[in-house]
Every structure is written in C-alpha cells, then in structure tokens.
Amino acid sequence: MSQERTGAATFKSNPITLIGPEIKVGDKAPDFHVNKNLLEEVTLATYANKIKLISVVPSLDTGVCDMQTRRFNEEAANLGDNVVVLTISVDLPFAQARWCGAAGVDKLVTLSDYKTKSFGTAYGVLIKEFQLDMRSIFVVDANDVVQYVEYLPEMTEHPNYDQAIAAVKALL
C-alpha cells in the first residue's frame, strides 16, 4: 500500500489526500509506466539522456491545465533538442490527442496515467478522492536526478512557470 499524505493539498480550499511519497530535489527520479497512445507505453528510460520538464495536470479540459500546457508548449520551442517537455494527466490518450490538435500544441509530449496511475503514485501526486494527478512540476536532469519540484498547495492555482523554466535552463 502506498503512502497517503492527508491534507497535503487542497481543492477549492477543501483538503485532499495525495498518494505516494513526496519527491525532493536530489532524489533519483522514480520510474513510471504511462501511455503515449492506447498501445504504446513509455517509461522514464524512454527519455534517457534528456532533461525532462514534467508538467502534471489533473485534466487538459480545465482552464488552468489548458493554460499551463499551452505555456509549456510555447517554452518548449526555445529549450533545444536536449530537453523534452512531458505533460502528464489521467485524460485518455484519445482526449489528449484531440485537445492538442484543437489547441495547436505540438512541441511537447502528452502522456496518460489513466491505466495504472503509475506516475501519480511514484511521484506522490495521485489524488485519492478524485483519482486524478495533482498539478505539479518536476525537472529531472539527463542523469535522472530531480533538480526542481513544485507541488501546488491548491489544485486550482498556476505553477511558477518562470522558476520551472529557469531550472531547465540552468541544466543546459
């Protein structure tokens, strides 16, 4: 059974429980198994030797998640080939592809945690009450060491985009 962090965050000021450990800077990035599409599963090793900016959103079909994903898509264009921007949610791969097509998002990779919630439990962002992944940001270096973490205290707030991008640029 995974660790539960009761009251680790809120949704509209109501406490929620996050499942999994709290990842810290300096930790070895946990592995995960998520879906790139319905048939293709990827892991942390899929992005070996790349700097990974991992943007976690509860659902692309909500306002803050939409804005967060569009912002990191714009930033991804300027980060170079050594960086991959991953957006992870529990949205089905079909919904992620539809949303990206409609939004013109094509510089980042959307990954779905719908099947096993492997990412959510490994990174301590699975919301017990909703079975969604909590908004958060992780920057993982090319050696798979976590260099930046932001767990949002409130699900409806925006992450600190500038700090996350600065953490990536510091690794270039």
Rank of each mutant, 00 (worst) to 15 (best):
N35W: 06
S55P: 11
I51C: 11
T17F: 09
D81S: 15
A122L: 01
K115F: 10
V42H: 02
L18M: 13
A122K: 00
T121D: 01
A170N: 13
L172S: 15
N14T: 14
V146I: 03
V56G: 06
C100G: 03
K12D: 09
N143P: 00
I16Y: 12
N82I: 08
V90D: 10
Q3D: 11
I51K: 07
P159Y: 00
N143E: 15
D91L: 12
Y148T: 04
P153R: 06
V34I: 15
S55N: 15
L111R: 03
Q163H: 06
K117G: 01
V105L: 11
F94S: 13
E154W: 05
H158Y: 09
S2A: 14
A8C: 06
C65T: 14
M67V: 10
E75M: 12
V34H: 02
E157G: 00
A77G: 11
I19P: 01
N14H: 11
P93F: 05
R71G: 04
L60F: 07
Y151E: 02
A29G: 06
G26A: 11
S2F: 12
P30W: 00
L108A: 12
N143V: 02
D81P: 13
A95W: 07
Y148I: 06
E154Y: 01
D113V: 10
A77N: 11
T17Q: 10
I51A: 14
V145W: 03
A164I: 02
F130N: 10
Y114M: 08
Y161M: 07
G101I: 08
Y161Q: 14
T43S: 15
L171R: 14
